[in-house]
Design a protein around this nucleic acid. Structure first.
Lengths: 333, 333
DNA sequence: ATAATCAAGGTAAACGTTTAACCTAGGCAG
DNA sequence: CTGCCTAGGTTAAACGTTTACCTTGATTAT
């Protein structure tokens, strides 16, 4: 049998109100004798407060929802970790949801999270989401979008980094290092970050006075397999190239593998730059030059701001501006 | 203002009981006219049932807890994904907890999950946990331990794979391929899997009639950095070796990197075998030969069995036996 | 001596559901 | 006409807390 606050109250010969106050530290008006007695009884009875019942009355669950496409994609564990860390620090708990880039799953999760009364949601929209759904419209709790924002969602804040700038910096650097026939193997062009990175790529090239090669854009998904495949296509068509700017690190790693298999020297024959700076970027050889996205930081900030919205209401917590930066390693000469 | 079941009842001119039955599909005794009317009103009012309130009375939250050391370690995202997939399929939701291999955090999470009334917990104990804590003793809900079991925890079931066998197979294979001076760069020896893998390593060697080199065991943590460092130590001491059996893939990848930097040919000069078969194992070149742990499957099964315990109670769902198997790729000749 | 204040704690409503038990009107068999 | 059954509901208690508002006896100020 579960022991409840009533049992404690009975055993300690006080009211449930008193026990509640002791448990929650609102014990200014409780004599220390009483407090000690209550605490002792709680201890020996193994009482565990039922937060569900508290939530009923306080209308706070101290729970956050995190919706991401797939925790298995190396971009997300760090993000998730960042969120979980603030959450935990602030006494919140995190519900993890993998949407698989499916709009239906996303919507189902959004409804589910609301039913479970989470206090707020952190949301990385699937790359296929172009507009706001009815589930999204039903949302009455704070939402933070991370990495990819959604047009027309009110009561949202966004955490984004400047994708265009990151790409610009990377591609500019490649050019200054003497690469000139630079292709872009990107993620799905339906996603905003992919569009922005592409734009940065184009601008860098044009500012440096080099024209992008014909058919320079190969668009696929954010996977290692796609990077491998992309390079294979280039090779099969006998394209003359000396640089690849990749949509993310996974793509870059796949590309490196394809190049390595053909015995093509990276970075001397072909330079590669990735995007994200996942853990594995340093574990390969040569180490991957990449645009560092502050993933952990993004998660952490998202969590911090969200909790701020939940609690402080009006204070309008400012988000520190998150910067991307180029990490120069071994895949560029 | 939130719309509640009472509002719906009032608008539809029925009792809350009726609405409840419609919402939960227990509507055998509801005329279809009434049902339609209720459903229409639910639809247009945007009513979202409050699962917290339901949980109060049903005493089920349809929520599972997952405690792992660190989602950032590539071993865990797949595991987590497996759990989340069954959970979702069965209408459960998943709370993610990162323990950082800290016993205190583990205990705190266990208490927290119980307070939030999760229906069950999936638990990968930190490598430093040697015995059952008082928090663990307080647990009254089903627990499944994954990968690392805990002695003396009742009401637990375990999902483990045979680490000894996996290691045995890997090392045997190395010997048959002509490697004979095989070192073992392992994870922390306090963890059971590390001990078991070491045992498998030793047995394989002895069964094949080759004696393990002096100081063959380098024990550290499960990180790429440690693999890198381990090989560096070997190299600095001028040890004569031609094979490394690594405690996991991260270690193996770190080791490969160190070898590559010194220009040592893998697999011809030195063979490497990892453990886990993380996604990255195929993304490096040469691709990593490794012992595949069915991570996703482990998570999936853990979830399945846990949900079975929660629901079916006595049926005693049998866990399919999970096998490890050697994936031969490019880091062995 | 009286009023005002204070410390310490009690009372009871409320949170939004579910569900066992009960009710009612109409139909039908005997 | 009586009794019983059934379809289609309704009633109200219960789940375990929190919290605004009381109460009480003692102390202090005037």
């Amino acid at each position: 049998m579960k022991v409840t606050i009533k049992d404690i109250a009975r055993l300690a010969e006080v009211s449930t109100a008193t026990v509640s106050k002791v448990v929650n530290g609102k014990d200014e008006k409780i004599s220390s004798a009483t407090r000690m007695r209550v605490m002792a009884i709680i201890e020996e009875s193994g009482y565990v407060p039922n937060r569900i019942a508290s939530s009923m009355v306080t209308k706070k669950t101290k729970t956050l929802g995190l919706i991401i496409p797939d925790i298995t994609n190396p971009f997300f564990p760090e993000l998730a970790r960042g969120v979980e860390d603030v959450a935990n620090k602030e006494g919140y708990t995190l519900i993890l949801c993998n949407s698989d880039n499916s709009l239906e799953k996303e919507d189902a999760y959004i409804d589910m999270l609301q039913e479970k009364m989470v206090d707020g949601i952190i949301f990385t929209a699937s790359s296929s989401r172009t507009e706001i759904s009815s589930a999204l419209k039903r949302v009455k709790i704070p939402v933070i979008t991370v990495d990819r924002d959604i047009d027309g969602l009110r009561s949202q804040k966004k955490i984004v980094v400047d994708n265009e700038e990151g790409a610009y910096e990377a591609v500019s650097y490649m050019v200054t290092r003497g690469y000139s026939k630079i292709y872009h193997i990107s993620g799905p062009m339906t996603s905003k970050p992919a569009q922005q990175r592409y734009k940065g790529y184009l601008n860098a090239l044009s500012d440096k006075g080099v024209s992008p090669p014909k058919d320079h854009l190969l668009s696929g998904d954010y996977s290692g397999e796609w990077g491998f495949e992309g390079v294979k296509r280039l090779l099969e068509k006998d394209v003359d190239f000396d640089g690849i700017f990749c949509g993310n690190d996974l793509i870059a790693l796949g590309a490196m593998k394809a190049l390595h298999q053909k015995g093509i020297d990276v970075p001397n024959k072909v330079g590669i730059i990735g995007y994200d700076d996942i853990y594995m970027a340093q574990m390969v050889s040569p180490e991957l030059t990449t645009v560092k996205q502050p993933n952990y930081e993004m998660g952490y900030q998202a969590g911090r701001v969200l909790i701020g919205m939940i609690q402080g209401a009006e204070k309008d917590i400012e988000l520190e501006n998150l910067k991307t930066h180029l990490v120069i390693r071994g895949t560029t000469r």
